[in-house]
Structures are given as C-alpha cells and as structure tokens.
Write a protein that binds this DNA or RNA. Sequence first.
DNA 1: CTTATTTTGTCTAAAAAGGCAGAATGTCCT
DNA 2: AGGACATTCTGCCTTTTTAGACAAAATAAG
Lengths: 330, 330
Amino acid sequence: MRKNSNIEDVAKLAGVSISTVSRVVNKSSTVRASNRICVEQAVKKLKFKPNLIAKALVKGKSNTIALVMPRYEGIFYSYYALEIIRGIGTICESLKIDLLLHITHPNTNLNLSNVGGIIFAEVLSERKQLEEAVALNIPTVAINNLIKDLAVSCVTINNKQGAREAVDYLLDLGHRDIAYISGGNLTQAAKDRTQGYKLALAARKIPLRGEFMIEGDYSRKSARDAAEKLLSLKNKPTAIFVASDDMAQEAISVILEKGLRVPDDMSIVGFDDNPSSIYGAVPLTTIRQPLMVMAQTAVKELDLLMNGEGKISRICLPTKLIIRDSCLPR
Amino acid sequence: MRKNSNIEDVAKLAGVSISTVSRVVNKSSTVRASNRICVEQAVKKLKFKPNLIAKALVKGKSNTIALVMPRYEGIFYSYYALEIIRGIGTICESLKIDLLLHITHPNTNLNLSNVGGIIFAEVLSERKQLEEAVALNIPTVAINNLIKDLAVSCVTINNKQGAREAVDYLLDLGHRDIAYISGGNLTQAAKDRTQGYKLALAARKIPLRGEFMIEGDYSRKSARDAAEKLLSLKNKPTAIFVASDDMAQEAISVILEKGLRVPDDMSIVGFDDNPSSIYGAVPLTTIRQPLMVMAQTAVKELDLLMNGEGKISRICLPTKLIIRDSCLPR
DNA sequence: CTTATTTTGTCTAAAAAGGCAGAATGTCCT
DNA sequence: AGGACATTCTGCCTTTTTAGACAAAATAAG
C-alpha cells in the first residue's frame, strides 16, 4: 500500500520548508521564483496532491456540499429532479466542489457536520432537515421552494405564474373544458402549479370541476391512469394541462391509443420543456423552466454564502411558454 | 456563528479526559459505568457530534465513497442508471456511508485523495479514471463491467445471456425476422446485449440483417427514430428486441401510432423490467435485472474491501425473462 | 500487602495553514 | 562603498480535532 506523498516529502525534496510548499501550492503569497520552480518540480515528481481532509480540518470548513433529495419514486424519476442532479453535479465538477448526495427520507437525520453547504432540491412538507441545517448555521439553498421564515437562499421559478400562462394559453384558444393532471401535493412546485391552474380559471369565472382535476405523482403510470379517467368521462375536456412533460407524453400516448387525435380532438400543454418533448408523436407545447440555470444559480449562491461574501437571496427565474403542435383553437 | 462543541468541551463538562470521551463515543474499550453515564449526558447536552473530518484524518481514511457516472444524457436518464444511483444512495444512507457523486466526463481527472472507495456505475471505453483509482490503491467496484485485467471487484449481470434469452424466446415463438434496437456502444452492457442478439440468431443459423440492427442510445428519441426506420422497411420484422424498457415503450408508442397492433402485428421484448413496464399500453415482456441487489452488492463488497476484510470478487447476478403481453407466436 | 486487573490520563500522530519573527535582499543616501 | 531602512521571503511553531499507544493510577482479588 503505497502512501501518498505529503507536503513534508515535497518540502524535503525541494529543500525548503513546509510553509513554502504550502505557499506555492496555494499561491497565497510571493515566493522567490527559483524556489517556486523547485517546489513545482518536486510536486510533479512526487505526484503530490494536498490532502483535502487535512485542509478541511485546518480551514474549519470543507469544500463539500450536500445535495438532499427525497427518495420517492415519482419525484426522483421526474426529468426535473434528474436534470437538477445532473446540472449540479456537472457544475460542482467544474468548480472543484465535492458533491455529497443524500437520497433520503425527509425526516431522517442527516450528518451535516462535515459539510460546507447544502442544497435542498425539494423541500417536502416535513422540514426537519432544513431547520436543522439552519440551526447549525450551515449555508443553505433551496431549489423550487420559497422559504420565507428561515435564513435560506432560494432559487425558484414562478410555478404558479407558469401554470397560469399555460392555462391562459388554452383559454385564449377558446377552450373552456380544461382538465388538469397534477404532480401531487408532496412538493411546493406541484402545489403551486395546481394553484396556477385554479387561478387562471377563476380569473375567467370558469367554475372548477372536480372530475377535471386528477392527482398524479410525476410517474408515467399515474399520468396514464389520469388520462384514462378523463377520457372515460361523459363530458370530456377539450384540453388538458399536465404538470410535467413526461406525464404529458404519456397522456398523449393514451389519447392516441384510444383512436383520438392530438391536437385535433384534445389539446395538451405540459410543463418542463424536457428535450424529448420536441420529438414525440406530437411535439409538445409546454412551459420551459431553465433547469441548468437553476442548478448553476443554486451552486453559485451557495458558494458565495460559504465564502461569507453573499447574503440570503431569493432568486426567481423566468418560465416561458413554448408553442409547438399539441394545441389547436377550439 | 456558534461553533460546534468538540470532544474537549465534552471532556471538561463530564470531568474526564478526552480519551475517555473517545472511548465512550466509539465503544472501543471499557469505561466505568458512572463515567460513561456522565459522558453520555455531556454528549447529549452539548449535542456533540464527532468531527468526521478530524476522524478521517486520524484514521487515514474516510467513510466516504464516490459514485462515478458518465454524464451522457441517454445513459444518465436511463432507468438503469437512475435506479443504481437511487439504490446506492439509499443503502449508503442506511450504512452511514457518505456518498460523493461525480457526474463526469470519463477522461476527466477525479480528485480521489479523500475518498475511501469508489464505485464506477459505468466504465466507458476510456478507462483513465478506473486505472488511476487502482494505481492509488483505492478499493474499487465496477458495476456492469467485467474488468479482468485490474484489481477491481465487479458486480454484473450476464447481459449477453440475458439478451440471448430474450431473442431465444422470440425464436421459440416462431419469429425469424427479429430486429434489434441497441443501447449504443458506449457501455459494455449495451455491447454485450448486442452480442447476445447476434449469438442467438447465429445459433439458429439465421443470417444477420444490417437493416434490422439499429443503434439507439437509451433515449426515447433514439428509440422513436429506430422504430420508425424499422416500420418503413419493405420487409418489416415481425418482432423487435429492444435494449431497454424505456426504449421499448417508445417503440410500442410508435407502432400503435402507425395503426399497427402490439403484439398482434409486432412482438416486442425489452430489457430492465422497469416498473412502469407493467402498466403501459401493452404490458411488456422483458428481461429483469436485479438493480437494487446490484447496488446493494456493490456497496457491500466495497465496504469489505475498505475494511480490509474482503478480496477482489467477481459477482454475476441472474437475469430473468418476465413474460407479459407484448409477444405472440408467429 | 502484593499481584492482577481494570480504568484513566498524558502525549503523540495525522496533514496542512497561517501568524510571527527573523533572515535575506533591495534601495537610498551620504 | 558603507550604513540605515524598507521590503520581500522564509522557517518555526502553533492550531485544528480525534484516535490510540503507553504508562500511571485506581480498584479488585487473594
């Protein structure tokens, strides 16, 4: 078991003190050129890499952030959650931040003592972990949840407004019987979208119909069941707003299987702008949310907090209605 | 900024030495009952949690493992990759192992110096990271790649055999014109499945047809394109083996959209046993791979290696043909 | 009271960073 | 050129937190 070389080995080989090596490696203050070259050569020769554990111990903080995600299937497998993981993962790699992944039940205790910051990808109704992080004074960012009562930075989109835009679009096309397949009520985002749907109808004084509002959970299965339920109604809707593109695609499949046409017989609007929505059987009209930007913003805000340079911020990024081929005027 | 209490604070409050506190916390040797109680109370009162960074430094190894995944979209969003992440994440949580996630380009340098072990979820053809891990003597487990030339434990399924079973099933049903939608050639698993397809046909002396073998990349889009290509052939196949359930579901959608029936006009076999395959338009016949068991096994093997108790092992878990409704005899 | 056993505390090690003092070099003036 | 002073470098030592070897103290047994 070959031991990694440490800073002392480098110092000996270069004929300087440990401090000087540290200074060269961390570019912290000026070192005479000749010494710097010596040290750099020694570093290269010994393949020296600073021990991040020791570094973290001395500095009193680590360069590690934790990403906390709920483990529920529907949510975890949504394009949204995955793109957030992938986005944050990619950005952390380029910023040389270590990313600890906690896929967890929301009221489990996390061991947060060796983490420099935390991103909550979804804060569910049990906020125990979030509150604990704040109590421990760990810089924290929440994605897609506006947390007003805690010292937590938030990166959100306006889900309510986005949903409303989707439904308004259908209304403007003349639809009045607009159904809704929701993302459940575990996440704030899902709840906000439901709110947006209700508000849009209310603004035009269209009464809500219970049989038009079906609860999904972001899984394809739930969307299939929901779509079948809607299609079996005596008074079918003429349009459906679906809380995610994945679910919208599944709904379209169901409709096509029943021999109906999209958008001729049924208009559909999704939410996400999942890249595969461009290519499916019917290119999907949807609400785009800038997931990569959200991930990037979250990591950047957290980085600022961790370096003591930032303060709690609430950032709301814009959504956009993307019109493709899944809607037709009524 | 309240500082976390450290072991010294506990020692003072309990009126004992640091060592005694350490002994109580780590249950390492006998401590007089009265003292143990004192210490336990002090721990509770001060909410003492051992600083894992210091612990890792002293012990010379951390309780952290890294999960390395390629960032390519098709692979990353496959049910397979996700279930592996979720499985490993869940198991690490219950074993109190910290999970570092590296979503990375396969020839990027990883900083592995503060990691106790590594799991490679997919080893692509560039094996740089894998070789580096081995060179640094870091315990390593590869999932779904049989690495014979390096000291790496492997947890695999027999992809070749599984694929062969799928195609044999179609052959036994009387099909002779069997097409294949692959998962590309970035992963060993995908390549092995292609091998299995070829072997099954070769065993029955059925010549391979180039136009029947279409390369996908685990994305739904690629499956849609592939299915459309197959359906536009003059001599259509009577059955398709698809390298993942996600892609198989998309292929079924395409077939139904064209007004053909599954399984009446086209038999389909998938690979994965993705839970949503039970519920789609046509419950899917598929090859089940035990993803949760794979994840668990990988973590357990790694844990053994990290504790010096295990040795390099090659574990192959069984697949199983699950017959549902997407195939009919020819 | 001696020997054996249990329990406890002291001290060092682990790796790197940074304050501080001192060494080396440079600048300026006479 | 030589001395006074400033500036730039450098090394020593301490700090961070915990684990564990070892020796010392306390207790138990005979």
